[in-house]
Design a protein around this nucleic acid. Structure first.
Length: 830
RNA sequence: GCGGGCGUGGCGAAACGGUAAACGCUGCGGUCUUAAACACCGCUGGAGCAAUCCUUGUGGGUUCGAGUCCCACCGCCCGCACCA
């Protein structure tokens, strides 16, 4: 008895655990998701940002990955040869921290995590071609980071330079800014850290700055991301001026407001400015040196403080410069509000028209002179409470007096150039990319230091420089490479004398700056990737990922693509044609999900309880994908119910024998419902509107349930509608769609079928309900044939009971007729 | 401060300038069940017995007609931030 019940149940009850395991195995055995390089079909490269192998896929990973998977599947059914690869961004600090904390090797920790996460992606039902997997911490991958580094070195795009970095005297190591705690305390050992000048490796991204800025205009990316990149690049136009210094070398400044130079009443240098020592007089030396030391040891966070009201600090150097236009003698100060990293590290201060200079002048009682007067107003220095930077005309500026503000800037620049007093200049905020890291778990930089020859790059055929895995990993906070004698000591490729290897490794952003090329030929042993294959697949047609990578990753990826182009490996300049960002999934109460507060959601549990298909639907249904929002566990039951209802429709149908055709009217209803749904689902998917796409699927199934009768369920028309529903569900719910496709007796696999086409005419209603308004207020509704003529529609509307009564005896001023939608009578009441 | 976005039922949300609240969740009532779960049916923005009226953060404007367009304000979120 019980066994019979069970058999009946297993055939007609939706069991995601059984279905999903079964089809997953079948797909893998059949290599259903392997992408051939050769195909008649047009290519589509759908890329999702690869994850860091932190150990477990959380719900955010599902959101970021399952939804683009739906799109990739949709594109496959639409006839594209779709490349949808996956890999792991496997170098980085967390692996080293795990090693220090748990005494487990970073490699072991990383590969264990990858195994777990790969299994989770399989569970998701993602259409990943795993034969193309890329793991960046393998020599097969980082070999090509080293290759790229050597090529860039050769082209002058990689260089070494001294720069100030945080240094912990106890740990004898460089620290990242994030590792310096408030009060300049080392995160690892608690001792006080200092700034030190160390040689670091840089990539010359500034070479490409104009291209990086200009090409943004042509990318199909969210405007927000493009704006962030533009701000980061920070182009500003202005002029360079030279100020003579009494008894010293001249000072160069950059200014965006050369038209205010007549108001420059003092100068300010960054504390790190190289000329500070020479300019400073003996009387001021002690004060200046104290200020420089203090500024130098301020943490970046303090220095870049968000507090706009932060009081200005600074010290007079004792030196004087000459204003090159007015020949006035003006004092030279130093202050930390002037940054060495921007412009020349020195400014001409125009306190009347710059709020920072104004605050500084007020704090130290320095002279202020108005050189821009707003029209119809007269600024008085004595009564000014803030700098003025609005419109107006130039005053106190010699022959330029009376020049209005926007034109004043080019006018003055022209004059400066003609008279040889200055030059037009464009400045950027973007700095070169510091790529060296004093860390173990990264790509070794392939150069050596020889006592005779200095720095010597390895040759291409000496690559890869393998990261030694037997490094002693003790929790000292030091990179094991420094104390790994076998790695460290080598011979010079130039003179064969003794040499030391570079122990710095490359920033992991280097790994992610070209990884999508590697997917196109992941096993190439001669080149980073095979140019013909890369040419076939790239650029990426659709790149999906988080907004947190809006600047660094995406900018570096664009930069390296241009470098690869100039090396001759690829032809295009921009890597990602289209970019879409998912929003962030928050905890139910609307805050960030957090492990410590236990507000994280485990996809594994949800899959166990509801199945991957329901979870995929639920993620799409939460709201617009780019918006994200609070998680809600209860809602997933609605998706489970929907799947069950469709499952029931199919299992009930296939139990019945087939016979006959539907009544013409019902057949038409089915046809309309079908075509309308295909249309909605197709356009919503193309627009990335996954939430309304799911709503359309649900409405289709609700419509079928309303029509359902035992007779209808035997007909060909009914089956055709069900088939279409299953096809439309295939991208979203790959498992149950495959199961139902089989139950309908169709040929495996649903995922290799063509996407259904729609006919807009067939999607139209035969009858429409028109809204009748009087003076814009809804008064009645009238159902009319969709193809009714304007005359017959108007007649029917006027004859409608409520309308006829309302129009009786009033003057109609105007009639607005919108075919198939609405009619509005504008009337004058009598 | 600068830049961008957003304010719609109890909740997530829909809505080419044209019926506001599709679809789902929750809740309530019912059917099935010994019971529960599942499932199914009905109701679910507010007021009113009803006809009907009101409702998209606030105030104004454009329009025959505004959630949608324009202006001002309030509130929230996200970037960037002493960049000369």
């Amino acid at each position: 008895m019980s066994s019979i019940t069970k058999t009946v149940e297993s055939a007609s009850v939706y069991r995601p655990d059984v279905i999903e395991a079964r089809w997953r195995e079948r797909w893998e055995a059949d290599r259903l998701y392997e992408t051939p390089d050769e195909s008649e079909r047009p290519k589509w490269y759908s890329l999702t940002m690869y994850p860091y192998p932190s150990g477990i896929l959380h719900i955010g990973h599902w959101y970021a990955f399952a939804v683009p998977d739906v799109f990739a599947r949709f594109q496959r059914m639409r006839g594209y040869n779709v490349l949808f690869p996956m890999g792991f961004d496997a170098f980085g600090l967390p692996a080293e921290n795990a090693a220090i904390r748990h005494n487990i090797h970073p490699a072991e920790w990383t590969f264990d995590n990858i195994d777990r996460m790969r299994a989770q992606y399989r569970q998701m039902g993602a259409m990943i071609d795993w034969t193309r997997e890329v793991i960046t911490c393998t020599p097969e991958y980082y070999h090509w980071n080293q290759w790229l580094f050597l090529k860039m070195l050769e082209k002058g795009l990689a260089y070494r330079q001294a720069g100030a970095v945080w240094w912990c005297p106890k740990d004898q190591t460089v620290l990242a800014n994030e590792q310096v705690l408030e009060g300049n305390i080392c995160e690892r050992c608690g001792s006080e850290v200092i700034k030190r000048d160390l040689e670091q490796w840089y990539f010359r991204i500034t070479t490409y700055v104009d291209e990086l800025l200009e090409e943004l205009d042509h990318l199909d990316w969210p405007e927000r991301v493009k704006t962030m990149q533009r701000n980061w690049i920070g182009r500003s136009e202005g002029a360079r001026l030279t100020f003579a210094v009494e008894g010293g070398e001249p000072l160069e400044v950059f200014t965006t407001r050369p038209d205010t130079v007549w108001g420059a009443t003092f100068m300010v240098l960054a504390p790190e400015h190289p000329l500070v020592g020479k300019i400073t007089t003996d009387e001021q030396r002690q004060a200046v040196e104290a200020y420089v030391t203090a500024a130098r040891n301020q943490s970046e966070i303090e220095r870049m403080s968000t507090d706009a009201a932060k009081p200005k600090t600074g010290v007079f150097t004792g030196g004087y410069a000459l204003n090159p236009i007015t020949d006035e003698r003006i004092p030279i100060w130093i202050a930390d509000y002037v940054l060495m990293g921007y412009g020349t590290g020195a400014i001409m201060a125009v306190p009347a028209h710059d709020e920072r200079d104004f605050a500084f002048a007020r704090a130290f009682d320095l002279p202020i002179r108005v050189v821009i007067q707003p029209e119809g107003e007269a600024l008085e220095v004595a009564t000014m409470t803030e700098a003025y930077h609005g419109s107006g005309v130039m005053v106190n500026s010699g022959q330029f007096d009376g020049t209005p503000v926007p034109e004043s800037i080019p006018a003055v620049i022209n004059w400066l150039e003609e008279t040889g007093r200055g030059t037009a200049e464009v400045n950027y905020r973007l700095r070169d990319w510091l790529v060296s890291r004093q860390r173990y778990w990264g790509t070794p930089i392939p150069v050596v230091y020889c006592e005779n020859c200095g720095m010597v790059p390895l040759s291409i055929d000496q690559l890869p420089v393998e990261l030694p895995l037997d490094a002693a990993f003790t929790p000292t906070g030091q990179s094991p490479l420094v104390s790994h004698a076998e790695f460290l000591n080598t011979i010079c490729p130039a003179c064969a004398g003794p040499a030391r290897r570079e122990t710095d490794t490359l920033d992991t952003f280097v790994d992610s700056s070209w990884y999508w090329f590697r997917y196109t030929s992941p096993h190439d042993q001669r080149e980073p990737f095979t140019p013909e294959l890369a040419h076939k697949w790239t650029p990426v047609d659709l790149y999906c990922g988080g907004i947190e990578h809006a600047i660094l990753h995406l900018l570096y990826a664009r930069f390296i693509t241009k470098v690869l182009r100039d090396i001759g490996l690829t032809e295009h300049s921009e890597p990602f044609v289209r970019l879409r960002n998912q929003g962030m999934i928050l905890a139910e109460e609307g805050t960030k999900m957090s492990k410590s507060r236990g507000t994280q959601v485990s996809p594994d549990e949800l899959v166990r309880d509801y199945g991957a298909d329901s979870l995929r639907l639920h993620l799409m249904y939460l709201g617009p994908w780019d918006q994200g929002g609070p998680w809600n566990t209860r809602g997933i039951t609605g998706m489970e119910r929907f799947i069950r209802r469709v499952y029931g429709l199919v299992t009930e149908t296939v139990e019945l024998s087939r016979s006959g055709h539907a009544e013409p009217e019902t057949a038409r209803t089915l046809e309309r419902l079908t075509h309308r749904t295909i249309q909605r689902v197709t356009t919503d998917l193309l627009d990335f509107q996954f939430n309304t796409m799911v709503a359309a699927l649900i409405e289709f199934s609700n419509g079928l349930i309303d029509l359902k009768t035992p007779e209808l369920m035997r007909t060909a028309e009914w089956r055709a509608a069900l088939q279409t529903l299953v096809l439309l569900m295939a991208p979203s719910t790959p498992y149950v769609a495959e199961e139902l496709w089989e139950q309908l007796g169709e040929h495996y696999s649903v995922h290799t079928q063509s996407w259904p086409a729609f006919d807009e005419a067939l999607a139209q209603d035969d009858f429409v309900e028109m809204v009748i308004q009087i003076n814009g207020k809804l008064r009645d509704r009238v159902v009319l044939p969709a193809n009714a003529s304007e005359t017959s529609a108007k007649t029917a509307i006027r004859n409608a009971e409520k309308i006829a009564a309302a129009l009786d005896g009033v003057e109609i001023v105007k009639e607005i007729y919108v075919p198939g939608r609405l009619m509005n009578f504008v009337v004058k009441p009598k």
